[in-house]
């Protein structure tokens, strides 16, 4: 039977590593933005008690989980969505699709339109999560790159573009 190769999914260690790092940083940036940015803060406040969401790649690719704790504080909860009851789960069909998204060659909107991203959970909450992720991308990415990732680059006040941006990035690095 050795003539018949069996091929198992997985591999591509570079892609996996890159995505793990990106998701870790984006997760911490969401936590940072929830403390630094008024709009993100308000979005989270409007979400249900102990709201938790995950962004993952199927079948069991890299993931990130973010949620509110008992007191409403937003926290990056790690990379194992199975450990939490999720309100919203955004799943990319494959690691490749997640890679497209996180190399900013494709926006969340295009990923959805191309049937590469699907949403489970409450739709109004999922819409809020996408809005939050869009804002976080604006914080993390230089303008030309962010423009590819979102539909419309926002016109922010100078303080948000400079001070808040620096603080979100700093807080994401130190995890506070």
């Amino acid at each position: 039977m050795n003539d018949f190769r069996e091929i198992t999914p997985g591999g591509r260690p570079f892609t996996r590593m890159y995505l793990n790092v990106m998701l870790w940083f984006v997760g911490r940036a969401v936590q940072a933005a929830a403390r630094q940015d008024l709009e993100v803060k308000r979005e989270f406040e409007a979400l249900p008690h102990r709201f938790t969401f995950a962004l993952t790649a199927a079948p069991d690719g890299p993931s990130m989980v973010v949620g509110k704790d008992e007191t409403g504080r937003v926290k990056y909860l790690g990379r194992r969505p199975g450990d939490y009851p999720l309100h919203v789960r955004l799943t990319l069909k494959s690691m490749e699709a997640l890679f497209l998204l996180f190399t900013f060659r494709e926006s969340t909107a295009t990923a959805t339109a191309r049937d590469r991203l699907y949403v489970e959970g409450g739709l109004p909450e999922a819409c809020a999560v996408v809005r939050i992720l869009d804002i976080v991308q604006v914080y993390l990415l230089p303008k030309p790159v962010a423009k590819l990732a979102i539909k419309r680059y926002p016109r922010w006040r100078l303080k948000r573009h400079t001070w808040d941006r620096a603080m979100v990035n700093l807080r994401a690095v130190i995890g506070y």
Partner: peptide, 13 residues
């Protein structure tokens, strides 16, 4: 309307 998923498929934000 902000919570309706069809907003994703609209060309402009």
């Amino acid at each position: 309307a902000l919570g309706d998923a069809s907003i994703f498929y609209n060309p402009e934000a």
